[in-house]
Amino acid sequence: MSLFLHRLRQMARMMVGMPDYDAYLRHMAEHHPERAPMDRIAFFRERQEARYGGKNGGKCC
């Protein structure tokens, strides 16, 4: 059940283009341990700009 809710939450966030922050941390720890990862707020802002900045082709009709 909690897995289901977790998925649902992830799906809702991904519907508005917000990937999982924990997955990002895991990726950084595994592949770039020497670099400091963005904190949660910086990550949120970076992703928001990336989605809505206009270079992603916009929305569908």
Binding site: M11, A23, Y24, A50
Partner: peptide, 12 residues
């Protein structure tokens, strides 16, 4: 890269 390229669960 944890940002643009992220292996995502298929239902998500």
């Amino acid at each position: 890269d944890g940002l643009d390229y992220v292996a995502t669960d298929r239902t998500v």
